[in-house]
């Protein structure tokens, strides 16, 4: 009743200002609780973190805290350790994701065909995913350790190395230690998501294609891949961003060493913040990483959109 009355008054334009204001802000008031929550939980920490990048925040210096503008970024531009960390991040994320993806896809294709004990195999494949990252880091660090682990001795026996040495202390090869651990740990993610996508492909398409004359490889290329492409795009995106930020294994296995050879940007941030206690500089690095990853994500999302539009 009152609604009708007020709207008729609205039309005649005789409503008091205050009431008009209340009417106009009404929808915003409804969403306000959700908005406030989002702002408080997500934006405030983000903005606070971003602001550190432009301030001099050193925990051991009580006089720090002042605004320094782009100073951190200027230092960063000529920071050799940061440049190396950036290169290492590319290797770390690129090698980990592509190997995880390749093995995950192979595993998914194997698990997609029926065989005895498939349910058990699927459960086993999932297992590494359930191991805490720190535990798997420690585990692999020991495996690479010639004193307690078998891997150096196997590599030596196969003639891959001239002596049973620790991969993790070899400056040129050390990065591959955490990468191998990461691949082992991350295969299940790809295997499971790709398997789910594979099982959603209608079987009769394969039958139609084989009647049309396609062999197994041609069926894979012309049916499986197009169907998987959107899933591949989104999982690769998620995993790349996640792995680029994922320093647990590196911290546990090499702690960035030897001589910063396994330092990635994420672990470099950690080092700057908690070893040197320079929060301002660490935040500046984090901002750069954020911008890079956002650019990358945008590209992948655009790619996925175009894939989906084609499908």
């Amino acid at each position: 009743m009152s609604l009708v009355a007020s709207s008729s008054r609205h039309i005649s334009g005789q409503r008091p200002l205050l009431q008009r204001l209340a009417m106009a802000s009404e929808p915003y008031l409804y969403v306000a609780p959700a908005l406030i929550l989002i702002v408080a939980v997500m934006l405030v920490p983000l903005v606070l973190g971003l602001s550190y990048a432009f301030r001099d925040v050193r925990l051991l210096n009580p006089f720090s805290g002042g605004f320094v503008g782009l100073d951190h970024f200027r230092v960063l531009a000529s920071d050799v350790a940061f440049a190396r960390a950036l290169k290492n991040t590319l290797l770390w994320a690129g090698a980990s994701v592509s190997l995880q993806f390749t093995f995950g896809l192979i595993l998914a294709l194997l698990l997609d065909r029926p065989f005895r004990g498939r349910a058990i195999a699927q459960a086993l494949v999932f297992l590494p995913w359930a191991v805490p990252s720190f535990l798997s880091g420690l585990n692999w660090a020991w495996m690479f350790n010639p004193v307690v682990g078998p891997l150096p001795h196997w590599a030596f026996a196969l003639g891959l190395t001239s002596a049973p040495t620790n991969l993790l202390s070899d400056p040129t090869m050390a990065m591959w230690g955490p990468i191998i651990a990461n691949v082992w740990w991350g295969i299940p993610f790809f295997a499971i998501t790709l398997l789910a996508a594979l099982q959603a492909i209608p079987r009769d398409l394969y039958e139609a294609a084989s009647i049309d004359g396609a062999n197994a490889v041609q069926r894979f290329l012309s049916i499986t891949l197009p169907f998987l492409a959107p899933t591949i795009a989104i999982t690769v995106l998620l995993r790349t961003v996640w792995i680029a930020n994922f320093a647990d294994l590196i911290i546990v296995m090499t702690n960035g060493g030897p001589a910063d050879r396994t330092q990635i940007v994420a672990s470099y941030i950690f080092t700057q913040a908690f070893r040197r206690l320079d929060f301002g500089y660490a935040s500046a690095i984090a901002v750069v990483l954020l911008v890079l990853l956002m650019t990358y994500s945008l590209l992948i999302v655009l790619l996925r959109q175009s894939l989906l539009r084609r499908a």
Binding site: E207, A208, S210, I211, D212, G213, A214, N215, F227, A311
Partner: peptide
């Protein structure tokens, strides 16, 4: 002989057209 070597064509109830 696998289907691809039999040189026959089939029309499915579901049509099984390649959606992409």
């Amino acid at each position: 002989l696998p289907p691809r070597d039999r040189d026959i064509a089939m029309v499915f109830q579901s049509y099984a057209l390649y959606p992409h």
